[in-house]
């Protein structure tokens, strides 16, 4: 299993991150993801299930890694999730986007925000100012500097995980790591 791990996570988990789960969890799983990437869409329910399985032993962090040239909606989707965070709805928006990956144009993104109780006009106007673009770009560069080479890329307890990431694979890796703690 050790040869599944490579680069260090250069930017440690910090207050700018979106963190779901117990701060004292034994395992920290960081995903660099692209909202329009189908592989990330596939990873989404897998991570959800792991969160249910491992409960307070697992804390999950999501960082943006949009490949904007090949995915035309990826950047705005990332900005939307970051903007939803200003309304305390980051994870709700993150989930909503991954559950509707085939409809990520601006009207749909605004409608997802509205469905979370956010004023749509205000959300649209704020989105137009690109106020969260800086955060998205800074996530992206932190990923490049930590050796992220595509999406999704996972880091487990600060090391890039290059092994298989189907549910059973990750479950096994996390179980072993918790055993080692």
């Amino acid at each position: 299993m050790d040869n599944y791990f490579s680069y260090d996570l250069e930017t440690l988990v910090n207050d700018n991150d979106h963190i779901a789960g117990d701060p004292n969890a034994k395992i920290t799983l960081v995903e660099y993801g692209d909202y329009q990437c189908p592989y990330c869409g596939r990873a989404y329910p897998i991570v959800k299930k792991l969160q249910e399985d491992f409960k307070s032993d697992l804390r999950f962090v999501f960082r943006n890694f949009p490949l904007t040239q090949i995915h035309e909606y990826a950047f705005e989707a990332a900005e939307s999730a970051e903007l939803a965070d200003k309304y305390g709805k980051f994870w709700e928006m993150h989930d909503k986007i991954y559950e509707h990956q085939n409809k990520l144009d601006m009207p749909h993104l605004v409608s997802y925000a509205e469905s979370l109780g956010i004023n749509g006009t205000e959300f649209f106007n704020r989105l137009e100012t690109n106020e969260t673009a800086k955060k998205v770009k800074s996530d992206f560069m932190s990923g490049v500097e930590s050796g992220v080479n595509g999406t999704p890329s996972f880091f487990i307890n600060g090391k890039k995980y290059d092994g298989p990431w189907e549910y059973e694979d990750l479950k096994q890796v996390l179980t072993q790591m918790i055993g080692k703690e």
Binding site: D34, L67, T68, Q69, I70, G150
Partner: peptide
């Protein structure tokens, strides 16, 4: 999505 060339393009 996982391709090296797509990353470098970005």
């Amino acid at each position: 999505c996982g391709s090296q060339i797509a990353l470098y393009n970005e």
